[in-house]
Design a binder for these strands. Structure first.
Lengths: 126, 126
DNA sequence: CCGAATCCACAACGATACTG
DNA sequence: CAGTATCGTTGTGGATTCGG
């Protein structure tokens, strides 16, 4: 559960603060592009372009936006080589790798239930 | 990994189809509202209004939209009692519960790394 | 109570162009 | 190559209303 109940007892102001923060993080991270980027990175170190190619369908803008967000949260590390042309590499941090484990779970789930889901959808659309 | 490489060998048309389907499902399901709904449902059976109250900040429209989508994919079961006023109950199906397990993981991750993330964010914002 | 439909404000997104 | 900014379009999502 991401959000807990507000009990009103003294001194759980901190708990509510933590919860709203947790909710904020969850809402930011739980979007397809962020998760696909994390999944694409895996345990590799990739350049911007490589990520762009690996995450199918993502635009330049979406990639930078999400990378900034993930960097801000400390989930990816951004390493800049001051060469010409510039070279920027992205790697998952420890928290990022921990999250990746759960994303792997989601990907696994997707493939495992592909059949169920496709069948359910056909049934529903009828 | 959600998408696999296209090798060009004969007969993996099926694989590519499955992959694009997996990607579609992933993209639909990996959004905050869907995941928060799944998490809110847990192993309970909830009415529309109850879900509305439990998933903080969700609008009537988003809730119905996402519930339709989840129902279409066979992740939630929708039970209608033809009374006045109507009573509609939602429950996770088996695939839904399986997905929930991974969502639980994400929520756990969020709380576990709250400190790391908050600190990283402060550092970044400076 | 639940759901669908309408309206429309605003954010998201893609495309493009420009800088280092 | 990587990043930012701008612009125009699309579409998301909230508010509201009506119907079952």
């Amino acid at each position: 559960m991401v959000t807990k109940q507000f009990t009103g007892s003294p001194d759980d102001a901190d708990l509510r603060r933590a919860d709203s923060l947790a909710r904020e993080i969850f809402s930011d991270v739980a979007n397809k592009w962020a998760l696909l980027i994390i999944e694409a990175l895996g345990d590799r170190t990739l350049r911007f372009i490589e990520l762009r190619n690996d995450v199918e369908g993502i635009s330049h803008k979406m990639l930078t936006q999400n990378l900034r967000m993930l960097e801000r949260y400390g989930l990816v590390e951004r390493k800049v080589y001051p060469t010409v042309p510039p070279r920027v590499e992205y790697t998952l941090t420890e928290p990022g790798r921990a999250l990746r484990a759960t994303v792997d779970g989601m990907c696994g789930w997707t493939h495992r239930y592909l059949g169920h889901i496709e069948a359910a959808r056909r049934r529903f659309d009828a």
